[in-house]
Structure formats: structure tokens, C-alpha cells
Design a protein around this nucleic acid. Structure first.
Lengths: 222, 222
DNA sequence: GAGTGCGCTGACCGAACGGTCGGTTGGGGT
DNA sequence: ACCCCAACCGACCGTTCGGTCAGCGCACTC
């Protein structure tokens, strides 16, 4: 009943560093859950795909929920690292930094589609609140940093000051994320020519947005 | 086996117009599936919540999948009607028409959160391809009309011509949809002040976008 | 070579799943 | 009066679910 883990900060200890067998299970679970969702994947499916017995899955993870959380933690770590990299661009021009973040973020989303889809699902599902909290932690932290980046651009003078910095941050993230989410559908829309050309989509979107948030009408720096 | 329905166009005949009992089941199923997802809701749950026997559910719908498709069809009809209304704005100014569409769409999304979430899920899940096709039909049609609206604005001269009309259409839809999707998370982000103020979010986003796609620098019409 | 810890397994459990079946209503047509 | 048929139900079916358990093989130590 009351045996919840109380360790607040430690990374590995709650479960020992995953051995090679556990990692194989983790990888398979990640792929299957990302594709079909937690409820649509059974432990049997995972075990079969990983070529181990179902009992072995429960040997390495204390429950299906536990395995799911481990999978999610892995995806979060992955995603957090990618966001760190995207935010670490070191240009002096905030406009360029925003652009680089946007491209980096979009590319990372598409390249690690599995983790992206996993987090997308975690945010959607009301069930397993622990999963939501996990995903929200990652997003809250990095979103703050992005907002700060926008705000810095505003006070440095190269971005307009009459809009909410959080709004632009949200739009940048959303333009990438929504593109990723709906890409499969976009392919079927005859009017859409950018479904298969993420770079083209990225630069077109950023240009359009930049016209809205950049300071001077002709002096954008590009 | 080979007993697929072949009727191409008819609306009602495959299943008779739903009686009051069937409608109650449908309503409950819609709510539960929208909240938890298809796989996380059992027929027993639906029957219990609707205060009927499980057998009765199978009396009105030939299978769980069939019930799901009926639920989805209902949500699609709902959504299609809302989009029709949003696209039917009759102003002469394309800029105003776009704005009205955007606000209408955002409001509809939030007001009929249940249907919205249902379609969002249908697009996400690779399983039950029939569901995807259903949702895609609705989107493809109305997206075309929206693109045409943008294109009309471009050739009428009040919108810039150096961007892809499908791109703006996509951004308008995405800005609403992504806001809807992530609203629960936005509430927890301290920097975000617009999570509870959709109208404020809507006008801020449209203003920012409008600066990017509108033709003249000072002549926006608002 | 007895002891020990660990990765792993097949057999098994109770519960819940989607779905079926035989039967009971009750209002409408003849 | 009769029958019919849709709506509805309790009981039940076979299957699969998440999860448990006793034990096997094998490397390692003393």
C-alpha cells in the first residue's frame, strides 16, 4: 500500500542500472507503445517481440505500469537532451538563436519520432497521471528557458516588445509539434506540398512568423 | 469474411436511425472514449454508465469496433457542421473572413471539446484505419476550402503573394488545434497567462500572424 | 564440490475482456 | 385473441489480460 518511492532527486537507484536484457525489453516496449499506445500493447506482445518470456519482463520491471514509466523516463531524458542542445546555440543575435532553436527543435522532433510520439501520447492520456507529470516537468523547464530567450531578444531591441514572449515561444514549439503530429495526414492533402520537406516548411514558417515579431520592417538581419 | 458493406454513398441505411436507447449508449460511449481512449474503455464500462446491460450494447451495435465507428461518425458530422459554419462567414474582406474563421474554429474546438478530442485521438492512432480515413475525409474537404479562401485573399491583393496558401491555412488550423491539445499543460506553465483566455490568445496569435501575411505595412483594416 | 546469487522459463492463477444465447417483456398490427 | 418483433436482460462462452511461483542452468566463490 504505502510503499511509494520517496527519493526526490536520485536518477538510477530506484531501479538498478538496466542490464542488457532489460534494455532490449525497454527498447521493444518503447517502439510498440509509441506506435500503438499503452493500452493497446500487452506484456505478451512486448515479450514476444523481444524474444523473451513474459515472466522475464516482470523479472526486470515490477509491473506493466512500471515498465511504462521507465520507457517514458527514457524518452524524457532523450527529449530533454535534444532541447538542451537546441537551446545551447550560442549566437549573439537573438533572432538567429530563435531560428536555430526552431530548426533544431523541428529536426529533433522528426528524427526521434519514437520519443516524440511517446511524449505526445503521455500528454494526451489523462490516465497514469505520473506519466503526465513526468512529461510536464521536461516541458515546463525548457519552455521557461525558451521564453527567457524571447524576452532577452525583446529587451535587446531586435524583437518587437508589444507581444507576450510566452506566446511566441508557444507558437514556435507548436508549429513544430503540430507539423510532426499531423504529418501523416498532410501527405494526403493535395494542396500541401511541404509534408515531405520539413526544412522548407521550417524556413517558410519562421519567415512568416519573423515578419510578425521582428522589430524593423526592412532590417531583419538575414 | 467477405461480407463488407458495398453501399458507397447512402448515409443511414447500413444501420437504422438510432432509437433513444441506442442514442444513450452512443452518448456515453462518446464521453468515455473521448476521455480515456478506445482501448482503455470496456463495453462493460459503457453499459454500466448508460445503465443498460452489456448484451443490450451488442444488440444495438454489432461489435465494439462498430460502436466506435458510429461514435466517430457522429463526432465527424458534428465537426464538419462546425467547420461549415466557420467557413460560411460572408464578409467581403478576405482578411476579415480569415479572422472570423480562426476565431470561429478556435471557439468551436473548445466548446465541443469531446468531439475534438475524439478526432484528435482518431488521427493519432494508427489502429483502426477506418477511423483515420473517416477523420481525414472531413479534414481534407474543409482544409481545401480554407486554402481556397487564402488563395482568394492573395489574388484579391489584400494578402501577400509570396507564401504558400496551404502553409497559412495549416498554421491557422494548427494554432487553434495545438492550443486545444496542450491547454491542460499550459495551465501549469507559470509564464503562460493566456491558458484560460482563449479570446485573448486568439486575437494575439492572429495579430502576430497578420503582420506576417498582410499586404500593406500600415493598412491592415482593423 | 557444495553453496549461492541471478537471469530466465513454463505452468499456472483469478479477473476481465469481447461476444453469444435463450428467454422475458410489452406495445402494435390483424 | 393472436402473433410478431424490437428492446432488453442474466448467465455464460472461450480467450487474453496482468501477474505469480517453483524451479532450472550457469557463473562464481570458498
Amino acid at each position: 500500500m504505502g510503499s511509494q518511492d520517496r527519493l526526490p532527486c536520485k536518477d538510477a537507484p530506484p531501479e538498478s542500472p538496466p542490464g542488457p536484457g532489460a534494455q532490449a525489453i525497454l527498447r521493444v516496449a518503447e517502439a510498440l507503445v509509441a506506435e500503438k499506445g499503452f493500452d493497446a500493447v500487452s506484456v505478451n506482445d512486448i515479450a514476444r517481440e523481444a524474444s523473451v518470456s513474459k515472466a522475464n519482463v516482470f523479472h526486470h520491471f515490477k509491473s506493466k505500469e512500471g515498465l511504462y514509466l521507465e520507457v517514458l523516463r527514457h524518452a524524457c531524458r532523450h527529449s530533454a537532451r535534444a532541447l538542451d542542445a537546441a537551446l545551447a546555440e550560442s549566437s549573439a543575435d537573438p533572432h538567429v538563436r530563435l531560428q536555430q532553436f526552431f530548426f533544431h527543435h523541428l529536426r529533433a522532433l522528426l528524427e526521434h519520432a519514437q520519443s516524440s510520439r511517446l511524449l505526445q501520447r503521455a500528454l494526451l492520456e489523462g490516465a497514469s497521471q505520473r506519466g503526465r507529470e513526468l512529461a510536464e516537468e521536461v516541458f515546463a523547464h525548457h519552455f521557461s528557458r525558451l521564453v527567457e530567450l524571447v524576452r532577452a531578444g525583446q529587451s535587446s531591441g531586435c524583437l518587437r516588445r508589444d507581444f507576450d514572449p510566452a506566446l511566441l515561444a508557444f507558437l514556435l514549439v507548436g508549429a513544430s509539434a503540430f507539423f510532426f503530429e499531423t504529418r501523416a495526414v498532410l501527405r494526403h492533402l493535395p494542396e500541401v506540398t511541404f509534408a515531405e520537406r520539413p526544412e522548407r516548411y521550417g524556413s517558410a514558417v519562421f519567415d512568416l512568423l519573423a515578419r510578425g515579431f521582428a522589430r524593423a520592417p526592412g532590417e531583419v538581419g538575414r
